[in-house]
């Protein structure tokens, strides 16, 4: 070559272990992907329940993020609010309250989720139950008057019993049609009503490979199967599985709560069993338990057995034939 040889600069060489290339995926991107997937459901909620719904979501997110920052500052840890995990928890928590819930309850609930359920156990990756669901259980026990009973009806100022409560017979009212259930034109907590919007978000997450299909498939499949077999008043196999799948928080829970990485099994087989277990407990509560809805408690209960599921579903190791210890 005729040009003068440039002296290569080798004084900033980094010596680190292989691999030297990394996939582009980051924790932050994964969390924000889930938030993006929740936008359709949030939009539908604002459309049906009005500006009040938006206020509650913003309060939940703000409280969760603020709490995370304050706790991390107090504990002299790195502040990681930009990773979106606190915002996601706040949003999911707001999705779990009815539109007429007081804003302060959402704020306290989100703070509880972050400060008590997440940070006291070591922050992101270390909590053993889903923070949003544990905070929902906390709110349900703390202020049951705001978390149960009659919920606001879409596009109206009146309240009504939820479809599942009517189905169970603990409340009276007319059951909404399948179509209303599907698009979300029913009473319920903010995020659960529109099956359509949630399915769009869930499909997006599966397409983007953010979540594993096994958990929601196992969860929803089990609920459908068991409610079909046992859900009917006229004997076995007379239940209405479609209604049980569309009503209540099943789709929200199956796609967005049960798939929470930190609190679900790490092995593919484990995730399938986890989903089936969630579905089983949900049906137990819905058909024979004290509450009309059992999705959140089923997920919380299954969260507790995740370490066992992990250990029982270890993948087969290459070249190892004997049973594992």
């Amino acid at each position: 070559m005729e040009e003068k040889k440039a002296v290569p600069s080798f004084d900033k060489l980094i010596v680190a272990s292989s691999p030297h290339i990394r996939a582009a995926e980051t924790v932050d991107r994964l969390m924000w992907q889930v938030i993006i997937a929740l936008i359709p459901a949030a939009a539908v909620s604002v459309y049906f329940f009005g500006i009040r719904s938006l206020v509650l979501m913003l309060v939940g997110v703000a409280s969760a993020v603020l709490t995370e920052a304050l706790v991390q500052k107090a504990l002299k840890k790195e502040i990681t609010i930009a990773d979106g995990s606190a915002a996601l928890t706040g949003l999911l928590l707001a999705f779990n309250v009815p539109a007429n819930a007081p804003w302060w309850m959402v704020a306290v609930g989100a703070a509880f989720a972050i400060a008590v359920v997440k940070q006291t156990f070591g922050g992101l990756g270390a909590n053993f139950v889903n923070p949003a669901l544990a905070a929902r259980a906390f709110m349900l026990a703390a202020w049951p008057q705001h978390m149960t009973g009659r919920f606001p009806v879409p596009l109206d100022s009146i309240t009504a019993a939820t479809p599942l409560a009517i189905l169970k017979g603990t409340a009276t009212g007319t059951l909404p049609s399948y179509l209303d259930l599907f698009i979300g034109n029913v009473g319920g907590v903010l995020g659960e009503t529109s099956a359509l919007a949630l399915l769009v978000g869930g499909a997006y997450l599966i397409w983007q490979k953010v979540i594993d299909w096994r958990t929601p498939a196992g969860f929803i499949g089990t609920v459908a199967l068991l409610t079909w077999i046992f859900g009917g008043k006229g004997g076995l196999f007379t239940g209405d599985p479609l209604y049980h799948v569309l009503a209540g928080g099943l789709i929200l829970g199956a796609f967005f709560m049960a798939t929470d990485y930190v609190t679900s099994p790490i092995t593919p087989k484990g995730r399938l069993i986890f989903g089936i277990g969630c579905g089983f407990i949900t049906v137990l509560i819905r058909l024979w338990g004290g509450y009309p809805e059992g999705v959140s408690y089923s997920i919380l209960l299954m969260n507790l057995v995740v370490p066992f599921l992990d250990r029982w579903t270890l993948p087969r190791v290459y070249g190892v034939t004997r049973a594992r210890a």
Partner: peptide
């Protein structure tokens, strides 16, 4: 002020005791 009923239920006892011990 709407009191949080959970605090006078057993879970409230465990959570507050944990913080107190901490």
């Amino acid at each position: 002020f709407e009191p949080a009923t959970v605090m006078i239920l057993p879970p409230g006892a465990f959570v507050s005791l944990g913080f107190l011990l901490g």
